[in-house]
Design a protein around this nucleic acid. Sequence first.
RNA 1: GGCUGGGUAGCUCAGCUGGUUAGAGCACGGCACUCAUAAUGCCGGGGUCGCGGGUUCGAGUCCCGCCCCAGCUACCA
Length: 411
Amino acid sequence: MRTTSPSHAAGVTKLIKLIQSRHADALYQGEYEGMYCVGCEEFKSESQIVNGRCIEHPSRELVPTKERNTFFRLSAWTGQVLEAINSGAFRVEPEIRRNEILRVLEAGLIDISVSRSRLPIGVAFPGTTDQTVYVWFEALMNYLTATMFSTPGDAPTWPADIHVVGKGITRFHCCIWPAILMAAGLPLPGMVWAHGYVQWGGAKVSKSEGTSISLDEAIERHGPDALRWFLLREVGFENDGDFSLERFDARYDGDLANGLGNLAARTTAMLEKYRAGIVPVGAAESLDISGDQCVAEYAKAMATIDLKGGAEEISQLVSEANSYIVATAPWTLAKNGDEAKLDAALAALARCLLRLSVMASPFMPAKAQALWSALGQAGTPETAWRLALQPELAGVRVAKPDNLFPKPTTP
RNA sequence: GGCUGGGUAGCUCAGCUGGUUAGAGCACGGCACUCAUAAUGCCGGGGUCGCGGGUUCGAGUCCCGCCCCAGCUACCA
């Protein structure tokens, strides 16, 4: 939803009027008087002023300035927002972000002016001629104008279950936004999840060595699925992280080429060699128990948006499968003619691969799909969670997939 | 400056309400195996747990002080 569209402006107007009708005193005329930094072109709060100077422009004098505009009584909602977070009705994740917000709230919010008289662009503030709506007040409203306000009659798609935002705008989403909704008598979103940033090449590295890498180059190197895997497995979704080619290559070679890719290759190769590509019937093995555990942990992690934790479970299961192969040594079973045990081992490995395909699909949809198809499955692994819990492949014809994660040929 | 995190093996990090010889992955060294993308498995070396005090029978884990790193800091988008 572009904030320049007419329906957006209408939605903004509607929300402001809704607030006015429910809480007449939530919006009031006031005079803002504060220290204005010419360098930043904005007013500074006390916390941003050190030794009487703006912390970002300590060389400039702050100018006392007055401006008349409309205020939102944010301070009045501090307690209720705090309560909503503490009670779990409105969740803020991860914990580090929640702690930040809680301290801010405990310190108390101050009213914010929500109209501007300086800017010629923007949505006109209802009831005024020379004022426009404060851009953040307006931008947050976009969530509503894009959902429940824009097209009357549609099924209500608000409240959202989760807002995924960058950590830099956590405050707007966790303090101002819920207060606005409360003032308007609208339900709050279930959760705000603030993710970290990734530095491409790292500022230090790129400046001194000139080794910064572009997004395109990174994708070109090992493919988009591998890049997603790297970011979620190594960096996670919560923390900041530095992208480096060394780490990317290490993850690709270790987790994907030597890990999942090689496991798929060796398993399907054995199925073809010993059982003509048909998955035999086999009772549950120790590997199935490992699989149950990994899937359970994976589900728990994914439910809490712990994508890094989910990825770790995939790696864990790959590792357990490799250990299982060496422990059972199917090639020895084949040589000795121990057909029953060979059936059991191959069947368990095939089931394990099927689970991995499903588990990997959120991270690497294309690669997971390739593995899925190689296992003789129709459709997509994304909708096959049931098979992650209880994999069944007996009698299915499988084929060795194309090299899932080829290693770059080193010159 | 205030607030929130972090400082544990060469690297990336786990270590819950304090309890026996501080863990994992990667990297490194040795051994084993051959189904596989010179792949995999097993074993091993390696740490004064930022510094200094304190509480305790006992602290990486709690308390105080200090040092260093990162992030946030609202009328910026």
